[in-house]
Amino acid sequence: MAALTCEVSWFCCGNSWGPCGTTGTGACGTCHSGRLQHAWPNASQACWDITRPDLCGINLARRTCGHRHTTTSRCTGRAVATTIADCGPRTKSFCGERSCCGSVCESNRAMDLTPAAYSRIESLSTGLRPCQVT
């Protein structure tokens, strides 16, 4: 796929501690915070109906559970390869939002990584970053 530039955040899954205790193992049934995985807004038609990235002007290809993407932080230049394990993020809820580090900015949420994956490219305390996805 052509490189997609967007925002990247992180989410917990796998019935871990705190508010993650009830999140379950995601739409694919395999999601766990300690695994190198991600959520994708077009993992199924039902998923697309929730996330609707098209309402933000983004058309994303249908990619299903287990498909591999590589996410590169536009702040650190570091990359992580992950597989789809859940549906998300809900792109439509943050249309037009921008995330920047210095003069580098990207808009719209299209990538959500597990804590294990996100912390390979950024500190978890950053929360939201511009990225490139291939």
């Binding site: 871990s16 294990a116 912390s119």
Partner: peptide, 13 residues
């Protein structure tokens, strides 16, 4: 590291 697998250098608990 194999995508989709646990990251041995990351702990959660």
């Amino acid at each position: 590291l194999e995508p989709g697998m646990p990251d041995p250098n990351f702990a959660e608990g």
